[in-house]
Simulated scan of single mutants.
Amino acid sequence: MSQKEIIATNKAPQAIGPYSQAVKVGDTVYLSGQIPLIPETMELIAGDIKAQAQQVFNNLTEVAAAAGGSLDDAVKVNISLTDLGDFAEVNEVMAGVFKQPFPARACVQVAALPKGASIEVEVILSL
């Protein structure tokens, strides 16, 4: 059985619960869901859904780097939105973050997210 390696960086928001920013097992890295928190203040970024989505992907980029990879290594992305009306804008941001071939993805609407966030994204990397 592969050893678990806990991934942590100060360049992304610290966990707001009993979880790790990411866990690496073998060549697979599981990045915990990120909401649009500014790492230095742990406050939600101001702005529309595009600004929030960009902050989320910035946070995920830093965690991926701490794991020795990048979002180019993403194989699966799970997006939770409090309003599926934001779907098109989030797609625009995602298209600027990921290159083809794009990772697999799910996007669902949820009733609420931590700290009143509008978006949360989790990613699985294959290094």
Rank of each mutant, 00 (worst) to 15 (best):
Q3V: 08
A106K: 06
V97E: 10
Q34N: 12
M94C: 05
K24Y: 06
A22F: 10
L60Y: 03
C107K: 02
V123H: 02
I49T: 03
F57Y: 12
P36L: 07
A22C: 14
A8M: 11
A106S: 15
V63D: 06
A46W: 10
A15P: 13
F98K: 04
N10P: 13
D73N: 15
A46M: 09
K76R: 09
A88C: 00
S32E: 10
V77Y: 03
S126I: 04
Q109N: 04
V123P: 01
P103K: 11
L127P: 02
L44C: 11
V23F: 04
G116Y: 02
V23L: 08
I49Y: 03
K11L: 15
E92P: 00
P114V: 05
I7H: 02
T9H: 07
E62T: 05
V123S: 05
F87S: 08
A46E: 15
K76L: 10
M42S: 14
I6K: 13
V108N: 12
A15I: 11
L125F: 03
S118R: 04
G47T: 13
A15C: 15
G47H: 11
V29H: 00
P101C: 10
S32M: 08
G69T: 02
A51H: 07
Q100K: 15
T41Y: 14
F57M: 12
E92F: 01
P114F: 05
D86N: 14
G17P: 07
D83V: 09
I45A: 05
I38F: 12
I119Y: 01
S2Q: 11
E62G: 07
A53I: 06
N91R: 07
G47P: 09
T9I: 07
I45L: 11
Q3E: 13
F98M: 07
A88M: 06
N10Y: 14
V97P: 07
P36W: 03
S32Q: 07
A111G: 06
A53F: 06
G47E: 09
N59E: 09
K24Q: 11
G47D: 12
S2Y: 07
P13D: 11
L60M: 07
A74T: 01
A112S: 15
K99W: 05
Q14D: 13
A106I: 06
A53K: 02
K24A: 03
L125K: 02
